[in-house]
Design a protein around this nucleic acid. Sequence first.
DNA 1: TATTGTTATACTCTATAACTATA
DNA 2: TATAGTTATAGAGTATAACAATA
Lengths: 144, 144
Amino acid sequence: MSHMPPDHAELASALRLSLLRAARRLRSQRVDMAATLSQLSALDTVGKCGPLSAGEIAMVERVQPPSMTKILAALEQSGWIERSSHPEDRRQSIIAITPAGLELLAEETRARDEWLAKRLVEFSAEDLRKLGEAVEVLDRIGSE
Amino acid sequence: MSHMPPDHAELASALRLSLLRAARRLRSQRVDMAATLSQLSALDTVGKCGPLSAGEIAMVERVQPPSMTKILAALEQSGWIERSSHPEDRRQSIIAITPAGLELLAEETRARDEWLAKRLVEFSAEDLRKLGEAVEVLDRIGSE
DNA sequence: TATTGTTATACTCTATAACTATA
DNA sequence: TATAGTTATAGAGTATAACAATA
């Protein structure tokens, strides 16, 4: 739109390319084959936000319900989540992380963070401050 | 690694999730059907860095050669790039953006930036400063 | 032999449309 | 009828392995 301040358009352009390329690098970094990145992200949500329905997890993760169905099927087959019946609504089930899931989550998260952290140690304190400040703002871009 | 300072591990963890979710939102935003995001990114590189070989584009975009082959085939079929023969090495071809490619690039980039810029207008000047500072650091994460 | 690029194949990630079961 | 979730299907994005052509 021509009424958009140039500041925003320029920042948007730079940020878009930066985000895509940084995310491409993160995704291509395959620590091991135990869980995919999407599975890990969903497992993280179940672990942090407590037992949830499939629809609630899809909403938090901002994916469509069929996408979450697939992710949850894989997590259940690996024994990382468990379903129990909803007390009032038999269409839903309540999904909780298992002890094995917690263990997997801790291991995988550590391994993946380590990969990124190894790159961060080469950065200056100033760079890290900039990244840290941007994290919270990035979260809002991803969740609106 | 246990010798990693906790600062780095914590920042890495937060940054990883933030980047992935923000990038997921960017990808899911389909402006129109003319070009995919990967095609647009490669076209941008050809447009900015001048005529290049397929291998050079793959290197800049940080993808493997077979991935770039596929992207370039789509760009060529749409008439957005052109190949000419390399004067000294007949294995390579020199890839350049066409006038139609330049036009497409400008239109698509504008549309996609606009989508992001519309979200940025809701942010404070302080937030925008944080994002702007982080862009350059993110670029280094994506290109190392 | 080494390099450049392509073809064949497969897997991740995600979506929309159509369907089932329950409310 | 409306809602929660699943199944079926498709397409974007990317990789590795095997190959062809050229250096």
